[in-house]
Design a protein around this nucleic acid. Structure first.
Lengths: 184, 184
DNA sequence: GTCTATACACAGATAGAC
DNA sequence: GTCTATCTGTGTATAGAC
């Protein structure tokens, strides 16, 4: 059995980069194929439609966040401050590596008033993020306050990414991350 | 001299609604023309390209904010709290009337990594907004703090709009507006 | 000023050779 | 599994009749 030249994971990673930078509608199947070093025809062998590529990209990316970022909130041996610091730094690095800021926020803004196709996975991403934030904050604040602050950290980070992208200045996100860490 | 059936302002308002809801790339010239009750051919009589329509939409909308929202910050007879309250309420109403949240933030996210075409006007919009916020806060806070808080209010509002759009829940933006007013 | 008709490029998607 | 070739729709933009 011959080994395929490019792995599914590699296809998804390259596609995520392209979608994140150019947006969903602006990205063509030709763009995706070329990013993966393939022709359109070959690319269609792996995915049946652009929508399907996007769905798998969102699911793959969401799982990556769950396994590599949000999981930090539930590590038993860390203090609340250590968790928040570690998780926030990881978010900072993720959102500033490559171009395009937050893949999920971009997709919300681009698609949420045009189609519901991706709403489920988008909501799941933000829900998992919020749960992780609230879980950390619960060891420092009463429940109502922790929930309020958890929501607020995400709002703060996403807003800072918009202004970071406009001005090309990481400081916006850095300040937002600092505010998160100061909560613990 | 015959009067034109549709005014330039009407063309821009309808185009802004369409761009705001569907995004720049997803909106076609046919969409814009139909929103104005015209055919593509007639629409091209008014604007030479889609990029030109967008530029004029952004400029028109930015001027509208300057004349109808940001100007509140400089009304001499109001207290800081009154200014912040009035301006924030106006922002809330604007961002929740019709669909699409913040036209400018949407355009930042959609275009800033693809082309620089609209960056100038986008930066002006956010700069004018920040100046207005900082001007109000300067009567309550020392300069460094006022500038920091001014930036933060915008980050907060823009982030809340992202989550508002995802969940279809105005409360996100309402909470952000409340936090702004509480600063004064 | 608005219309129909059209040119041309590129999009998403499929078929079939290798 | 990848390629080339092709189908079909739609996009931007223009030309010319009314």
């Amino acid at each position: 059995m011959p080994i395929q030249k490019i792995s599914r994971q590699e296809l998804l990673l390259k596609s995520i980069s392209t979608f994140r930078e150019k947006g969903y509608y602006r990205t063509s199947m030709r763009d995706l194929a070329e990013a993966c070093g393939l022709t359109k025809g070959a690319f269609y062998h792996h995915f049946s439609s652009k929508e399907e590529v996007m769905k798998h990209c969102l699911i793959f990316s969401c799982n990556w966040f769950k396994e590599n970022v949000y999981t930090i909130a539930y590590l038993p041996k860390l203090t609340a401050k250590e968790k928040m610091s570690k998780m926030s730094q990881k978010l900072l690095k993720t959102f500033t590596t490559g171009n395009g800021g937050c893949f999920f926020a971009n997709t919300v803004i681009e698609t949420s008033h045009v189609e519901d196709t991706f709403k489920g996975i988008l909501k799941e991403y933000f829900q998992e993020w919020e749960s992780a934030m609230v879980f950390i904050l619960l060891s420092k604040y009463p429940e109502v306050e922790a929930k309020k602050l958890g929501k607020r950290t995400i709002v703060d980070i996403e807003g800072s990414i918009v202004l970071m992208q406009l001005h090309g200045d990481i400081q916006y996100l850095q300040d937002s991350i600092d505010r998160c860490i100061e909560l613990c």
